[in-house]
Amino acid sequence: MSIDIQTVNKLANLSKLEFDDTGKEEVRQKLNKIVEFISQLQEVDTENIEPMASTVHATSTREREDKVTEENHRDEFMANAPQTEMGFFVVPRVVE
């Protein structure tokens, strides 16, 4: 598998990143090197081996009781936001 410019365009779009043509070529070459490196893993025989979701096998994930433990700290959170209005975070218009 090798990465072409179309794939770079798609990834850039998905990641909301923008590159000029030189940048794209640079990214393409770097990504190809990464893919090549990772491809070594393909040599390992994984037949009949269960996919691993975590390196910790001993227990199940932790669970908590269904109890409200958090209070309203809206003002503190809003203090970090560039723009707010009537309790909302304000962002550039996004309509799909």
Partner: peptide, 16 residues
Amino acid sequence: KSVHDFGDENHSHVDL
């Protein structure tokens, strides 16, 4: 939830 029909038309309002 994003609200689009509130405030000025160049912005969306987010309620988390």
